[in-house]
Structure formats: structure tokens, C-alpha cells
């Protein structure tokens, strides 16, 4: 007895995908990071643009004062990683939607990946190797807690 193939069988059986579903986790990441970013970014905007003298108060001493506090170190690290990965994944979606040339698409996705890795590395190094009182800098540019040299 011979078996007859079921109608509408694909020429090749659908390959069972193993491992993690990247698109699914990307979709979940956009929503999970989005909720956290709403809090982080509105907090960031309030402290830097609204409170006190707003944007005119921002200078090296202001940033150094913030980054001397572990609270803002954690805040800014989360902001850097979550926002840049959220933005890069969004750009990846847009490139996949509109780049209909295979080569252009791969180049753009590569550029997004490279810039994301470079900026996350740079930003993380800046936050964790930062010295709020760099030697040899004029005291009037430094935060008030720096020792007088």
C-alpha cells in the first residue's frame, strides 16, 4: 500500500526553527524597554531642561556633579543601553521595510550595528572611567566638591 501525500504539501517541509526567536524577542524588547524609557527619559528631561535654570545650567560641573552620584550613573547607563538598542532596533525595522535592494539593506543594517556597538562602548567607557575632578583643569570649571589644588 502506498501513501498519498497530503494535498497542498510544500515542496520542502518547513524547517523547524530552533533556538531563540529573534524577531519575537525584538518585539517584546521594544515594549519592555519602551515602558522603562518613558520614566528614564522624562526624568532626564525634567532634571536637565525644566528644573532650575534649564538647559543654561548644563556645563561640565553640572554633569560631573550628576555622575559623582551612583544613582545618576545607574540612570544614565540604563538610558544609554535601553535607548540606543531601542532606537537601533527601530531603525532595523524601518530599513527592512524600505530597503528593497539586497546590498543597500545589508550595508544599512551593518552601519546600524557598527554605530550601535561603537556608541554603547564609548558611552559606557565614558560613564565608568569619568573623573569629575580632572587634574590640571581650571577650578572654576569643576564641581564645588573638587579639592582645591
Amino acid at each position: 500500500m502506498s501513501t498519498i501525500e497530503a494535498p497542498r504539501s510544500p515542496l520542502k517541509p518547513a524547517r523547524r526553527r530552533r533556538g531563540i526567536n529573534v524577531e519575537k524577542w525584538g518585539w517584546i524588547y521594544m515594549r519592555a524597554s519602551g515602558v522603562v524609557l518613558v520614566v528614564l527619559i522624562f526624568g532626564h528631561l525634567f532634571v536637565n531642561l525644566v528644573a532650575g535654570a534649564g538647559v543654561k545650567a548644563i556645563d561640565f560641573a553640572f554633569v560631573a556633579g550628576k555622575l559623582a552620584d551612583p544613582f545618576w550613573v545607574v540612570w544614565d547607563t540604563l538610558l544609554l543601553w535601553l535607548a540606543l538598542l531601542h532606537g537601533a532596533n527601530g531603525m532595523r525595522t524601518i530599513v527592512n521595510d524600505y530597503a528593497n535592494n539586497r546590498m543597500v539593506r545589508r550595508l544599512m543594517l551593518g552601519a546600524i550595528a557598527l554605530s550601535t556597538i561603537a556608541l554603547i562602548t564609548l558611552g559606557t567607557l565614558v560613564i565608568y572611567t569619568f573623573d569629575p575632578c580632572p587634574a590640571g583643569s581650571p577650578a572654576n570649571l569643576l564641581p564645588s566638591f573638587c579639592p582645591v589644588r
Binding site: 556645563d59 561640565f60 564609548l122 565614558v126 570649571l141
Partner: peptide, 24 residues
Amino acid sequence: TGVAIYFFLLVHILDTSLVRLSPE
């Protein structure tokens, strides 16, 4: 808005990184 914010973010990480270079 997403694309606009993304390109601002790229610039904003670079300008903030200057705190590591010098206060000036």
C-alpha cells in the same frame, strides 16, 4: 519621531562623551 529622536541620540551620546576629554 522615532527616526528624528534616533539621530539626536547619536549626536547626544557623542557630545556628552566630551566630558571625558576635558571640561573646556
